[in-house]
């Protein structure tokens, strides 16, 4: 019991004053998981999404599972909705673009826009939603990863992946310096405005030009600050040794092994469905007979091209 109390105390103290990035202190299973196992989830979800990208039932299922994980992590839905504030554009773009590909213009037509020549079929819409899910799912996993992991654990996680711990510190220092830089920008802006700088004057190009007297001193200050920070860190032995210890060591506990095992099984099932039954290679309609036949095809070669295609999908390109 006393341990519990200490934790909640720490939680409370920790949350005072911003600059923690997305991290929300809570005491849930997901918070206690090792960042490495959460990263494993990300990899699994990314690969699963790539393999099952035409299959709305599976991408939808992943979406649902992730939604439950967000609830398990006791994230407020407000924060979760924040995610969707920025992804609705992807959603709309998907809904419009994907049904227009000729191979998805089969089956029952739901909507036709004559002027643009757009046709929305059942299959087309399902594919669109599926593609939306497969972009959003990895984002949600990342969201879970960042909201449930203490920033300091990232540096350690990075080191455990046999990478130099310096990389982990880039992220942490970024978080540490966001409020400092914000303060600097406010100071510079106020100073320049008191000397008669008008930010909202003129057309768009002029408005951009108005920001030069803020941007230049800010850049100079930031360079100075980074030099000072480097001096300070180096005179405390940063980078002296290849390996370093951490005050709180990450432990890959039984919980983590179970988690990894669970998702490995999941991934195995996905591979099995894809390779043996070809599920996920073609869109599935509710009505039967419209689909290309499900053929058990083995060996299936172009996994790599498939994955590369998926990566291009993520940035909005599609290569045929």
């Amino acid at each position: 019991m006393p341990k519990e109390k200490k934790n909640s105390n720490e939680e409370q103290e920790f949350s005072q004053g911003g600059a923690l990035g997305l991290y929300v202190p809570r005491n849930t299973i997901l918070h206690r998981l090792d960042p490495r196992s959460k990263f494993y989830l990300f990899v699994v979800i990314l690969l699963t999404s790539a393999i099952m990208r035409e299959e709305i039932r599976l991408t939808g299922l992943i979406f649902f599972i992730l939604f439950i994980l967000v609830l398990v992590a006791r994230m407020s839905l407000k924060m979760y909705m924040l995610l969707f504030n920025y992804t609705w554009i992807i959603f709309v773009a998907n809904i419009i673009v994907w049904p227009q590909y000729p191979q998805y213009k089969v089956g029952r037509i739901i909507l036709e826009v004559p002027f643009f020549g757009w046709t929305f079929t059942e299959i087309g819409l399902m594919v669109a939603i599926s593609r939306f899910f497969l972009i959003v799912n990895p984002i949600i996993v990342m969201f879970i990863l960042f909201t449930t992991t203490k920033p300091r654990d990232f540096a350690q996680g990075v080191m455990r992946f046999k990478l130099p711990y310096k990389f982990g510190y880039i992220f942490m220092l970024g978080l540490r310096f966001i409020p400092v830089i914000t303060k600097e920008i406010t100071e510079i802006t106020e100073a320049q405005m008191s000397r008669g700088l008008e930010l909202q004057k003129g057309n768009l190009i002029n408005k951009l030009k108005n920001y030069v007297p803020i941007f230049v001193p800010m850049l100079i200050r930031m360079i100075k600050m980074s030099v000072q920070l480097g001096m300070s860190m180096e005179s405390r032995g940063f980078g002296a040794l290849k390996k370093r210890t951490f005050l709180y060591e990450l432990k890959f506990s039984l919980r983590d092994w179970l988690w990894v095992a669970l998702w490995t099984i999941w991934f195995g099932i996905i591979i099995y469905l894809r390779v043996i039954y070809g599920i996920g290679a073609y869109p599935v309609s509710i009505r039967e007979g419209l689909l290309p036949p499900i053929i058990p095809y083995w060996p299936y070669v172009p996994y790599l091209t498939e994955f590369i295609n998926y990566l291009f999908d993520l940035i909005g390109l599609h290569l045929w």
Partner: peptide
């Protein structure tokens, strides 16, 4: 520009951590 960590405790631990002292 001297503080690198997100808690007081971590900040003090930063230097000895760099020298890989025991926990």
């Amino acid at each position: 520009t001297q503080i690198t960590s997100l808690t007081v405790e971590d900040e003090i631990a930063f230097a000895p951590e760099n020298f890989a002292l025991p926990r």
